[in-house]
């Protein structure tokens, strides 16, 4: 069992290095989409939960995880998708949120329940000048997970990773 646990830890370490295909500054574990890793004999099963149901990145996630583990000698990898509990931006790591801000995407603010209800998030900070005088331009952005904002001070448009 000890070796088994050790292997599972190693698998988590490997998956930590897999970047998000759309926002490469984040890893899959920063996003919090990897739910479980199990192993029996030589077979590895990784359970992930989709961010958005139609997100085209999901297929790439699966391929990238499989490729990464294959490279490291785990040849029998299967990916299981689990819908419940549904992924929430609350699962994103603090480290992940900091990385997003530096990358130029304003990270999700507050807890997902409240902002999903009202949809309007105030005082989203501008990742460029840090001003909180910003305005929502569109609820929908360049990928399913983002909304489009504009800074009223530096006028720069920017993405906000919306709460879900």
């Amino acid at each position: 069992m000890v070796t088994q646990d050790k292997k599972i830890n190693e698998l988590w370490e490997l998956i930590k290095e897999v970047p998000d295909p759309e926002i490469p500054v984040l890893t899959l574990t920063d996003l919090g989409i990897v739910r479980e890793i199990t192993m029996s004999d030589e077979k590895v099963e990784v359970t992930i939960t989709p961010t958005y149901t139609g997100c085209p990145a999901m297929k790439v996630f699966e391929e990238d995880i499989t490729a990464k583990l294959n490279e490291s000698g785990y040849k029998q990898v299967s990916i299981k998708t689990s819908l419940s509990p549904a992924w929430s931006t609350d699962w994103m790591s603090e480290e992940g949120k900091e990385k997003l801000m530096k990358y130029g995407i304003s990270p999700p603010m507050g807890s997902s329940d409240k902002s999903v209800l009202t949809g309007i998030v105030k005082n989203v900070p501008c990742p460029q000048c840090k001003s909180t005088k910003t305005e929502l331009v569109s609820q929908f952005g360049s990928t399913p997970c983002k909304a489009l904002y504009q800074c009223s001070d530096c006028k720069e448009p920017f993405d906000y990773f919306k709460c879900i």
Partner: peptide, 20 residues
């Protein structure tokens, strides 16, 4: 442009629902 993106985003969500 923003509205074009919004409609295709919604289309994508619906496609995800259809897939499930």
């Amino acid at each position: 442009l923003e509205e074009d993106i919004a409609m295709t985003n919604i289309s994508l969500d619906l496609l995800g629902g259809a897939d499930l």
